[in-house]
Computed example of a mutant assay.
Amino acid sequence: MSETHDPNGYVWTLASFTDTIHRGGVALWAWSPTRRLAQLDGLCQEFWETSDSIVPIDDLFARVNPEDRHTMMLDWAASETEPQPYSFDFRIGAGPAARWVSARGVGGEAGKVGDWVQAIFLDVTRQKRAEEAERLLTAELAHRVSNMFTVARSLTAIVARGATSTPDFAEDLSKRFGVLHEATALATRAQIGDQGIVRLRTLAERILSPYLNGGNIGIDIDDAAVAAPGTVNDYAMILHELATNSAKYGALSGGGTLTVTGRVTGDALTLAWVEESAPSGAVASDGGGFGSRLLRQTIERSLGGSFVREIGGTGLRFEMRVPAA
C-alpha cells in the first residue's frame, strides 16, 4: 500500500492500516486454489496458531474442529467460484478453548488478485459463546417450565385421589403449590449466589416457619447437606408432607417436640425427622395413603434413596438416606 494523503494531511501507510484492522479483530489472508497454499498475516497466524506465513491449505483444514470441518471445506471451495459475498463460521481447535472465526469476502473473479483469492477472518469467539450461553439459558428455562408442569399435573392427580371434598382438595393443592413456589424462589436465588445449590437447613426453616412461634422445634442440619438445582422441589415436598402430617396428628399440633437433623457422611446424606411427646391418639399410617405414596415416589424414584418411618406411643421417627449432592 502506498502512502495516501487526505486534505487534512493524515498519511495512511500499510503499517497503520494493518495495525488498525488488527485492533478490530480483522485478519488478512489469501489462498491459491491451484497451489493449495494460504498466505497469512500476523493476526491470521495467531488465529491458526502457526508461525508460518505461507501454509498448505490441508494443514489448515486439519486444525478445524472435526464437527465443522466438512461444511467449512465446502464453503471454502464455493468461495473460489461463486461470484457473491460470502460469510461462513467455524472453530479452530476443539474443547472450551476453541476459537471461533468467520471467513468473509467476495467469491469469483472479484475476489482474486492473479491466482490468489483474498479475504478476511474475524475472531467471533465472544459472540459465539454469548449465543451458546443464550441457547443454554433458553433450553434450561424450557426444561424447568416442563418439569414444573409435570410436577403440578402429578401433584394435582395425587391430591385429587385423596381428597374428601372440593374445599379440602382446593386448600391442600393451594398449600402444596405454595411450597413449590417457595422452593423455586430459593432455587432461583441460589443459582445467582451459590452455584445453584440450596442448603437444606434454609429450606427446612422456610417450610417450618409457620410453626416456629410457640412450637418446640430444633433444626440442626449441616451446611454440607444441600439440594442440587434439580432436586430442590423434591426436598421441599418431603419436608412439607412431614410438616403437614405433624400439624394434623403429631408434635406440631401442640405439645410436642420436633427435631430435624441432617448429616453428610461420605457420599450419603441422612435426614432425620423426630417427633417426641406427641399428643396421644395419633393414628399410625398403613403406608398406603397419599403421604406415603408421595414420600416413596419422591425419595426412591426421584432421589434414588430409601427411608424408614416408625410410629410409636411417644412419637414418630422418620429417616431418609439419599446420595449426597
Score class of each variant (00 low, 15 high):
Glu205Trp: 03
Arg35Asp: 13
Ala185Tyr: 00
Ile217Leu: 07
Thr150Arg: 15
Glu3Cys: 00
Gly305Phe: 01
Val274Tyr: 01
Ala157Trp: 06
Gly262Cys: 11
Gly250Asn: 11
Pro7Asn: 15
Ala224Pro: 04
Thr156Gln: 13
Phe318Glu: 14
Ile57Leu: 14
Gly291Met: 04
Ser280Cys: 05
Pro83Gln: 12
Asp234Ile: 01
Thr50Gln: 05
Val322Arg: 10
Glu276Gly: 11
Met73Asp: 10
Phe47Ala: 04
Asp89Asn: 07
Asp41Arg: 11
Ala27Asp: 02
Ser277Gly: 02
Ser302Tyr: 08
Val64Thr: 13
Gly108Tyr: 10
Thr138Arg: 14
Tyr235Glu: 10
Gln84Phe: 03
Ala142Glu: 13
Leu137Gly: 02
Val322Phe: 01
Asn147Ile: 00
Thr270Ala: 13
Phe318Leu: 14
Ala183Glu: 10
Ile54Val: 04
Glu205Leu: 05
Thr259Leu: 08
Gly230Asn: 12
Met320Glu: 01
Gly255Met: 02
Gly291Ala: 12
Thr50Asp: 01
His143Pro: 04
Glu109Trp: 09
Arg176Gly: 03
Leu203Lys: 07
Arg296Ala: 06
Glu3Pro: 01
Gly305His: 00
Thr202Arg: 13
Tyr10Leu: 01
Leu141Cys: 10
Ala204Trp: 06
Val106Asn: 06
Ser51Cys: 12
Phe169Ser: 15
Arg293Leu: 03
Lys175Gln: 09
Ala243Met: 05
Ala272Thr: 14
Arg296Asp: 09
Leu137Phe: 00
Ser79Tyr: 10
Leu271Ile: 12
Gly93Lys: 14
Phe90Thr: 04
Ala163Thr: 06
Asp68Gln: 07
Ala142Met: 07
Trp31Lys: 14
Glu49Gln: 13
Leu239Lys: 04
Met320Gly: 00
Thr270Val: 14
Asp234Asn: 10
Ser154Thr: 15
Arg293His: 11
Tyr10Pro: 03
Ser146Met: 05
Glu241Cys: 11
Leu208Pro: 15
Gly214Cys: 05
Ser174Pro: 01
Ile192Phe: 10
Arg321Pro: 01
Asn216Leu: 09
Leu28Gly: 09
Val11Glu: 05
Ala228Arg: 14
His5Ala: 07
Phe90Gly: 05
Gly254Asp: 04
Leu137Cys: 02
Glu80Cys: 07
Ala228Val: 03
Ala110Gly: 08
Pro56Ala: 07
Ser102Cys: 09
Val308Glu: 15
Ala15Val: 11
Asp168His: 08
Ser306Asp: 15
Thr166Gly: 05
Gln297Glu: 11
Glu46Trp: 00
Asn216Thr: 14
Val113Leu: 12
Arg206Asp: 09
Thr50Ser: 10
His22Lys: 14
Pro279Glu: 10
Gly105Asp: 01
Asp19Phe: 00
Phe290Gly: 06
Arg296Phe: 07
Val232Ser: 05
Glu67Ala: 06
Gly196Gln: 03
Arg321Val: 09
Arg135Met: 09
Ser174Val: 01
Arg201Asp: 06
Leu208Trp: 00
Ser146Lys: 10
Ala98Arg: 15
Ser280Phe: 03
Ser2Lys: 15
Arg23Pro: 07
Met237Gly: 02
Thr156Leu: 05
Gln39Asp: 13
Arg135Val: 05
Thr202Leu: 12
Ile197Cys: 13
Gly266Thr: 11
Leu212Gly: 04
Met73Trp: 04
Pro66Ile: 03
